[in-house]
Design a protein around this nucleic acid. Structure first.
Lengths: 211, 211
DNA sequence: ATTCACTTACCGAGCACTAAGTAAGTAAAG
DNA sequence: CTTTACTTACTTAGTGCTCGGTAAGTGAAT
C-alpha cells in the first residue's frame, strides 16, 4: 500500500488515464447529441458517430455498452444542462417564476441543436418500448408538476385567478412552448420564435391573472 | 383498339384489374401509415410493410417506386383525409369556425393513429433534406394561413378583439393543440386529452373575445 | 399481342455488435 | 526502484443480419 489512498471506483482528483477517458467520453456524447438532433437516433449509425469522433466502432461501444447506452448518455447530459435552469426556477418567488417561463424558451433559441434534439428524441420515444420512453415520460411529468406547483402558489397569493386547473394549465403552457418550437424548427423563415413567445407570454399573463 | 374507350390515365369507372390494383395500393398505404405512426419512417422497413400487407418486397416497390414514394403516398393520403375537414371549416361562418377549432382536435382523438403519424413524421422531417420536409413546411404554412384568416374575419365582425396579431395567434393555437397531442401520445395515462382540449377551448374563447 | 401486377432470386452496402488481441498505464510485491 | 500482475482504452477483423433496391421472368387480364 505505498499510495493507494484513492478508492478504486471513486472520482478522486486523478488526472491520469481515467480523467482523459472521461473527457473523451464527454466529447463523444456532444458529437452524438448533434448527430441525433440532425438525423434522429434511428437515422444515426454507430459508424457515423465513431467516424466523426475519430474512434473505432468497438471503441465507442467500450464506453457506452450499446447504442441505447449512448442515447441514454446523451439524454442524461442534456438533462444536466437543463437541470441547472430548473433549480434556478424553483429558487425564485412564484410571481417571478411565471415571468421567467418565456425566458426559458427564449434561452433554447440560442441552443437550436438542443431544442431539435429534444423534439426529435421525444417523437422517437412515443412507443412504450423505445429506449428513451420512460425517461421522457418522467421528464414531462416532472415539468408539469413544477409548472402546476408554480400556478398553485400563485393562486394562493392571489396573483393568479382561482378558477383554473393548475395541472391542465401546466400541460397547456408546456404544449404551446413545445409546439411553437417545433414549427420554428421546421420552418425558421416563416416563424419568428422570439415574437411568438413574447406574444404568448402576454396571452399567458392575461389568462393567469384573469384579464 | 378493340375497346380503348377509357383514357389511359383517367379515373373512369373501370372495375377490372386497374381498379383492383388501386384498392390494393390503398390498402397498402393504410397499413404503411399505421406502421410509420408506430415506429416512424426510418424505423419501418419495406420488408415489414410487405409482410404485413401480404405482398413481396419488390411487389411493394412496383407500386411506389421506392421507400420515399411510399412515404409520400401515405402523406398524400393523410392530407386527403384532413382536406375534407379544412373545406368544411372554410365553408362555415367565421364565428362558427372559431368554435369548430377545438372540434378539429377532438376529432383527432378518435384517430389516434393519424395523430401519431403526423407527430412522428414532422419530427423526422425537420431537416431540410428529409423526404417529407417540403410537404410539412407547406402544410403548416397553409394551416396557419387558414386559422389566421379565420381570426381576421372574426376581427372584422368584431367577434374577436382587434389587439392581437392573427398570424402569431394562429401559430400559437396550432402549437398548443400539437403540443397537447404529443404529451398525450407519450403518456396517455397522465394526460386527459379531452379535458385538456376542452379547457384550452375555454381559454381560447376568452382570449379571442377579450374576456 | 401486349400490358400489368406481381414473383423468385439476388445484390452490395450497411447495420449493431463480438472476438481477440495490444499497448499503455496503474498497483502492489519483492 | 524495479519487477510482476492486472486493468483500461482502445484496435483490427469479422460475425450474422437487415437494409433498400434490381433483374428477369410468369401468368392472368385486356
Amino acid at each position: 500500500m505505498s499510495r493507494a489512498d484513492q478508492p478504486p471506483h471513486g472520482d478522486g482528483p486523478a488526472t491520469g488515464r481515467r480523467e482523459r477517458a472521461r473527457l473523451r467520453r464527454e466529447e463523444i456524447i456532444l458529437i452524438a447529441a448533434g448527430m441525433f438532433a440532425e438525423r434522429g437516433y434511428r437515422g444515426t449509425s454507430l459508424a457515423d458517430v465513431a467516424a466523426r469522433a475519430g474512434i473505432s466502432e468497438p471503441g465507442l461501444l467500450h464506453h457506452f455498452g450499446n447504442k441505447a447506452g449512448l442515447l441514454l448518455a446523451v439524454i442524461e447530459r442534456r438533462d444536466l444542462d437543463s437541470e441547472a435552469f430548473a433549480m434556478e426556477l424553483l429558487g425564485m418567488e412564484p410571481a417571478d417564476r411565471l415571468r421567467a417561463l418565456p425566458e426559458f424558451a427564449r434561452r433554447n433559441r440560442h441552443r437550436t441543436e438542443l431544442a431539435k434534439l429534444f423534439t426529435v428524441l421525444v417523437a422517437e420515444s412515443l412507443e412504450p418500448d423505445a429506449p428513451g420512453h420512460g425517461h421522457f415520460v418522467a421528464r414531462y411529468r416532472a415539468m408539469r408538476a413544477i409548472v402546476a406547483d408554480t400556478i398553485r402558489s400563485a393562486q394562493r397569493t392571489g396573483l393568479t385567478r382561482a378558477g383554473l386547473d393548475p395541472e391542465a394549465k401546466a400541460a397547456e403552457i408546456i404544449a404551446t412552448l413545445d409546439g411553437l418550437q417545433t414549427q420554428w424548427l421546421l420552418d425558421p423563415e416563416a416563424v419568428d420564435i422570439v415574437a411568438a413567445i413574447e406574444a404568448y407570454a402576454r396571452t399567458l399573463e392575461r389568462d393567469l391573472t384573469g384579464s
